[in-house]
């Protein structure tokens, strides 16, 4: 059985008070695709990510993962009066999954401002993310009756560190690693949850062109190796144009363009959003 649609957003709207951060965003991502979400600063990209991963409950709209409804909401309480989103049809049901439940379904993410476990080593950072696959309970874990499972988890963590090229820095504190390696460590940690869909929030932020090029190769590599579908937010156009299969562009929360990289490059609306338009 193959799942055709990995992720689908229907009319997702996120409104904070009077500010509409994401407005009527609909998109779909097919299996094995690399899809990018781009837009100027403050366009609502990370908010969209947070709606998908359950950090925020969207004001309106639904998210499906592998055709299963994982997030669904409609304006409630005070938002009923305040709602100004452009989509006025509301789903009837409310489905709220917490971030950990969504991760358990197979959606892993990284963070725009790196969020590693600071007091832990690189190896422990990855090992922590295997916790959700445990079959042991509190007692068997405390009394070390789960040593086989523990062994498997440790091996998996080492393999992942190897895959991102950090095996040598295994026992170093996560915070003492250079910036680029911290980014890769975060990806390794996300991979340890054994995801099918990986959400990358600005993976190339703060990298120079050489590092960005290496990262592009790395992302394509892990997609192949782990059979991933990748959804990324990025500012580096080189990277986005290089690796994405399709691109969504949003500005002020609204989707302004979608299509193949070549189409986006020449799209006047996108150019206007990024560079501004002359007043005539």
């Amino acid at each position: 059985m193959s799942v055709e649609t990995m992720l689908e957003l229907k009319h997702v709207t996120m409104q904070f008070g009077g500010v509409v951060a994401v407005d009527d965003l609909s998109m779909h991502i097919k299996k094995d695709e690399i899809v990018a979400l781009i837009g100027p600063n403050g366009a609502g990209k990370t908010t969209a990510f947070n709606c998908i991963t359950g950090v925020y409950a969207p004001t309106n709209g639904q998210v499906f993962y592998q055709d299963k409804l994982i997030v669904s909401n409609h304006p409630q309480g005070r938002m009923k009066q305040l709602y100004v989103g452009s989509h006025k049809q509301f789903p009837s049901e409310v489905v709220e999954n917490t971030p950990d439940q969504i991760t358990k379904l197979g959606v892993a993410r990284t963070f725009q401002n790196i969020r590693l476990f600071k007091t832990q080593t690189a190896f422990e950072n990855v090992l922590i993310a295997t916790h959700l696959h445990r079959k042991s309970n509190l007692f068997s874990a405390t009394l070390r009756l789960n040593y086989k499972e523990e062994q498997q988890h440790r091996e998996l963590a080492e393999q992942l560190l190897d895959a991102v090229g950090l095996l040598k820095e295994k026992d170093e504190l996560a915070v003492s690693l250079p910036y680029g390696k911290q980014r890769r460590l975060e990806i390794a940690r996300a991979l340890a949850t054994k995801p099918q869909l990986l959400l990358l929030d600005e993976p190339a932020a703060g990298m120079n062109p050489q590092e960005t090029e290496a990262l592009a190769k790395f992302i394509v590599g892990i997609r192949k190796r782990f059979g991933l579908t990748i959804f990324l937010i990025e500012h580096h156009m080189d990277l986005v144009m290089d690796i994405s299969d399709r691109i969504y562009v949003i500005d002020f929360g609204k989707q302004i363009a979608t299509g193949l990289p070549e189409q986006i490059q020449d799209n006047p609306a996108v150019i206007a959003a990024y560079l501004g338009v002359d007043e005539e």
Partner: peptide, 27 residues
């Protein structure tokens, strides 16, 4: 023993960064 088990690691993850811990599937 508990602190050095997988549960102890989860506790320390929560201490270090709640948001990241939750995103890693820790309830």
């Amino acid at each position: 023993l508990l602190i050095h088990s997988t549960y102890g690691r989860a506790f320390k993850a929560i201490r270090d960064d709640e948001v990241a811990a939750e995103a890693m599937g820790i309830n």
